[in-house]
Computed example of a mutant assay.
Amino acid sequence: MNQNFVKSAVAATLLIAGTIGFSACSSSDEQKGEASAKKVEKQTLTNVSYDPTRELYANYNEVFKKHWKEKTGGEVEITQSHGGSGKQALEVANGLEADVVTLALEFDVNAVRDAGLIEDGWVKEFPLNSSPYTSTIVFLVRKGNPKGLKDWGDLVKPGIGIITPNPKTSGGARWNYLAAWAWAENQYNGDQEKAKDFVKKLYANVLVLASGARGSTTTFIENGQGDVLLSWENEAFLALKDYPNDYEIVIPSISILAEPSVAIVDKVVDKRGTRELATEYLSYLYSDEGQHIAAKNHYRPSNKEILAQYKEFDPNVNLFSIERFGGWDKAQKTHFSNGGIFDQIYEKK
């Protein structure tokens, strides 16, 4: 046989084998690349929130996952953390990684900002001072209101057992305290000493100071302690839903417009590459779908047209804003800082 023919045949065979091998490798590499791309598409997001938003975000997260999938084609896994708002802010400031915080009040977000994790100006990053939903403070009493509690003045009567969280750790507790203080200011024509004395008497009737609002709800409902729970409106509605024959809500003559705050934790999202995801997560709270979810979880939507569709919310509640106290920084310094008025009036039992 011609040697040149043999050499040509061997070369052709090697070329074909090499081509097949190259094609196989290319196909394998392409498959790996596609798998890798699909893997990259799934992102994670951590939302550090406060106590009473557990049900709200359990619902919202499922809706948002679907929205994100439709918008980007990507998957997202969302982790939640809940606790007293002040405590949660401290946890984030001390290293708990959060892409977003959804806390009970502006001051707690500022605490994360002061730790260098959130940029200045965060309060204007989203509409309505970055407060997509609101609430207020009401009284939750046992069915029939056996102690006849109608307004703040009734809470200082002898023998009344009050359940409220600790203002040093709970955002909701600070709203409770300031609502009581504002009532006393009105009652005593702005006399600060009389207001201070009233709030001191109120806290003398407090049986248990839990670290967060959900802990206080547990104390009142599951443990059966106290005559009245100073409660977020949304928490009170949840109690009525679960125990319709056991409790009722009393709306005091004056209360406070509680404005929970949301913010992107800039330092974390820039490190993790999740800024776009975090921005959409908080922005979608303002969408019609997000607003309806808030309302169905008994938070007052910031969208007035959607709010009007939910008849459970009394539109005639007499609400004042935190500006009555000069904003949160001033209120915190005056009332809740170490050595502030709360420390002066509260005696541990």
Results as ranks from 00 to 15, higher is better:
Phe126Ala: 05
Tyr310His: 01
Tyr310Gln: 01
Lys201Val: 01
Lys42Asp: 11
Thr79Ser: 12
Phe220Ala: 05
Lys69Arg: 07
Ala11His: 05
Gly153Gln: 15
Asn47Pro: 05
Lys267Leu: 07
Phe220Met: 10
Glu235Ala: 12
Lys333Leu: 09
Gly121Ile: 05
Tyr346Asp: 10
Lys311Val: 11
Asp314His: 01
Arg113Ser: 11
Leu155Ala: 03
Ile322Cys: 05
Asp270Gln: 09
Ser130Glu: 09
Ser283Pro: 02
Ala24Leu: 11
Asn338Arg: 12
Ala294Ile: 10
Asn176Phe: 03
Ala115Phe: 10
Asp114His: 06
Val109Asp: 03
Phe220Trp: 06
Gly224Asn: 14
Gln187Glu: 15
Lys32Asn: 09
Arg275Gln: 08
Glu106Tyr: 13
Glu280Phe: 05
Glu280His: 11
Asp151Glu: 04
Ala180His: 01
Tyr50Met: 12
Leu105Ser: 06
Ser255Phe: 03
Leu56Lys: 02
Ile221Ala: 11
Pro158Lys: 14
Glu185Met: 15
Glu323Tyr: 11
Lys71Thr: 08
Arg324Leu: 12
Glu97Trp: 09
Lys296Tyr: 06
Asn2Thr: 02
Asp120Leu: 06
Ser261Gly: 07
Asp51Leu: 07
Glu30Gln: 14
Val268Tyr: 11
Asn338Ala: 13
Trp175His: 10
Ser253Gln: 14
Thr19Arg: 03
